[in-house]
Amino acid sequence: MELDELKYQLNQKLATDHASRTDADIAALLKKKTHSVISKLKRSLIIEMILCILFSAAMLYVVVISSYWSIRLYFGVFTVLMFGFTFILYYLYQRTQKLTDSQQPVKANLQAVVALLEEFVKRYFQFTMAILPVCFVFSLILSSMEPISIPEVDKFALHYFSARWQVLIFLGVYMIVLAVVLYYFTKWYLKKLYGNYLAELKQCMTELG
């Protein structure tokens, strides 16, 4: 039996295999929360924007109260960076706002969702990676310009290192390892969050040509 012959019967099966919903059931559904990826992304962007603003305020507070010039500079730069990142998040949020049109053709809808997710993943990754060198360079410059003596750290350094170059090598290796770990961790995390889903959507786009 071919598809054409079964059309009517199959249609009946597909449409009747359910329990009908009443008006009240549908009205109740309208009050529930959506679980679409775009809605999740929106929620996540709102939370991240709030966190960014809170962190910026906290860092600004440190800038104001700290008596160390190096700490003020360090946290001041990160306040500006966080502020900038908040704008990136807001820009992405605005893009998700425009993407609530699920009545467009399937291909156009897929293209819009994929483009947004790719941009989100790209910006997230770029920001995380960009913050690392800033963090390292500032730590090195500022700690050498205005060293603060912490007894526990000094004790540790004296125990393991006999020369300054050894400390510098240790710090260099530590930063490289941390950067590599963070690079792969961020990639893995973003892939885990959106990678497989993006691949699935792209496969659908490829099918549509």
Partner: peptide, 10 residues
């Protein structure tokens, strides 16, 4: 259209 878009990107 809405249903298929939602199902495909679900």
């Amino acid at each position: 259209r809405v249903a298929l878009n939602t199902a495909i990107t679900f």
